[in-house]
Nucleic acid binder design. Structure first.
Lengths: 126, 126
DNA sequence: ATTAAACGCTTGCATATTGCAAGTAAAAAA
DNA sequence: TTTTTTACTTGCAATATGCAAGCGTTTAAT
């Protein structure tokens, strides 16, 4: 097993621990759970606000949503921009790194649509 | 939230609970964790045996590997065939449904390779 | 300006999952 | 026949998840 980043003296959530140099494993360290790619899906659909992600039909718990957004920010998959002119609220949007997940999420949508009966795509066919 | 399958009187691991009709969510119900797609990666690389998956550099715990293989069998992503002529041991191979994950895993490899520095692909470029 | 509602979280806590180490039975090799 | 390998299972501590409630700030309504 391989490690990246700083020593073990302060094992925080920010410490980067890679299980292997495999890019698939590395991607899974960022994206590999049942919720993160649903947030990315919503972002690809143009949703930008905490409440929007919360309102998705899967019903993500708010503490999990907070943590996942923090992780995506940390890994620069998303960034925050002012939500509207004058206002102080922030919106989440995908960075180029995040937008690059489009094909992956579309593949997942296509696989689910093809092999799991009874599913229906919300994501546009593009 | 939507449910599929039988009633609640016997909530086993075999009961199918879908969080939504979204194919992405449905795919994540099968594949959404830090280990499952690594096993699929190994299968795509031609590995077929429990010990082979166990030997991968990420070091999957054996109880997790057992459970993940059982889940992949249950969802017909993998199947078992005799490992050799005469022998009684079984090998795991991808079904068509499982092979259809090839593009998804390649996308993940490509995304990891491009955006996470210090990763190296083992999976063939195909 | 004042009040009310919505927003974006955080906290507490019960339950579920994970990861580690050890153990085991069957199959294969020696 | 004995030994080693394989493919798991089990026990258990640590971590993550999911639910509900709460809370300070921002925005909307009056």
């Amino acid at each position: 097993m391989l490690w990246d980043g700083v020593g073990m003296e302060k094992l925080e959530k920010t410490s980067i621990v890679r299980r292997s140099p495999c890019p698939v494993a590395c991607a899974l360290d960022i994206l590999g759970d049942r919720w993160t790619l649903l947030v990315v899906r919503d972002l690809l659909l143009g949703r930008t606000r905490f409440k929007d992600f919360e309102a998705s039909p899967e019903g993500i718990p708010t503490n999990i949503l907070s943590e996942r957004l923090a992780r995506l920010l940390r890994h620069k998959v998303v960034e925050q921009v002012p939500a509207g002119e004058g206002g102080k609220r922030m919106a989440y949007i995908l960075t180029p790194k995040g937008k690059a997940l489009g094909q992956l999420v579309r593949d997942m949508r296509d696989w689910g649509s093809k092999w799991e009966k009874g599913t229906r795509a919300a994501l546009t066919p593009a």
